[in-house]
């Protein structure tokens, strides 16, 4: 259910709703008139234009970025067969992934039917081929190993002690600092105007960064990070959960504020990809 803008404007402007209505009507009338002629652009919002007798609106990049904060820095990627295989467990169907756990309980004891009488509840069990159990078991084992691997990696992070207490629904984990030193090491002589490194600052306050690439595959993200590692001295791969799928962002630098990150984004335009975005780490 959409909210009316009138009370919101009244609150923002600190005037009554009765005062807002004529002001808003005047603005809307003016806006529609201009949209009919050349179109009208509102900075930070977008452009209104009359098209085929209908008022059309094209959102400004600022607005598009604002509504896509949770997904910022993510871009479409080509799926090679290898990438697809790697991406599919995290990417494919999260509902199925979660649902497989409860269903795995009966599936995890395939020997049980031969030793225990559970026939009323398991009439279909015998119909399943052995292959499906093996497949499910392998998938579960793989997921377990992946989880265990993540746990180990996170435990070895420099950030681990302060951040690894995030709840299971946490949308982002800190940069993999265990890998960034190698990247940093490869860039022992970074350009003099490279973004400042976070090493010397309190990382708690430097939670803004610049995202230069993203991938659903950690390997692909690391490859991109290695590429940028020769140009910048603070490159990291940050994993984040978006719509129950894991994405890996390649980040450069750590900054205390969004404006500081955007300043570097503007200053280093030639060295950064055109779709580089500022991003706040969680």
């Amino acid at each position: 259910m959409p909210k009316s803008i009138i009370p919101l404007l009244a609150e923002r402007l600190d005037i009554s709703e009765e005062q807002v209505q004529p002001l808003l009507s005047t603005m809307v009338e003016e806006l529609r008139q201009r949209a009919e002629s050349d179109g009208v652009q509102l900075s930070g919002l977008g452009t209104f234009r009359e098209e085929d007798g209908t008022l059309a609106f094209r959102p400004a990049p600022t607005l598009r970025r604002r509504v896509n904060r949770p997904y910022e820095g993510l871009s479409a990627e080509s799926l090679s067969p290898a990438t697809e295989r790697e991406a599919s467990p995290a990417q494919g169907t999260p509902e199925k992934a979660t649902n497989s756990e409860p269903s795995s309980a009966p599936a995890a004891d395939p020997e049980a039917p031969s030793t225990q009488d559970r026939s009323p509840a398991r009439p279909d069990a015998n119909d399943r081929s052995v292959d499906s159990f093996v497949l499910i078991s392998l998938i579960l084992a793989g997921l377990f190993l992946l989880g265990a691997g993540w746990f180990v990696i996170n435990q070895t992070n420099l950030w681990g002690p302060t951040q690894d207490a995030a709840p299971p629904t946490a949308t982002e984990t800190p940069p993999d600092q265990a890998e960034s030193p190698s990247t940093t090491g490869s860039a022992s002589d970074p350009p003099p105007d490279a973004p400042p490194s976070a090493d010397t600052e309190a990382s708690d306050t430097r939670d803004w960064t610049i995202v230069v690439a993203s991938s659903s595959s950690r390997g692909s993200a690391q490859e991109a990070a290695d590429t940028y590692g020769s140009q910048f001295d603070s490159v990291a791969v940050v994993s984040g959960t978006v719509d129950d799928a894991t994405w890996y962002r390649v980040t450069i630098g750590r900054y205390p504020s969004e404006s500081a990150a955007e300043r570097v984004l503007d200053e280093r335009t030639e060295a950064l990809p055109p779709d580089a975005w500022t991003h706040q780490l969680e």
């Binding site: 977008g46 209908t54 008022l55 059309a56 609106f57 959102p59 607005l63 598009r64 509504v67 896509n68 949770p70 997904y71 993510l74 871009s75 479409a76 990627e77 080509s78 799926l79 697809e84 991406a87 990417q91 993203s214 659903s216 978006v242 719509d243 994405w247």
Partner: peptide, 15 residues
């Protein structure tokens, strides 16, 4: 070429 597009929020305007 198969391409994976990330999730997005899209601004929609209904006149």
């Amino acid at each position: 070429v198969r391409r994976l597009a990330p999730p997005r929020n899209q601004v929609v305007f209904a006149p």
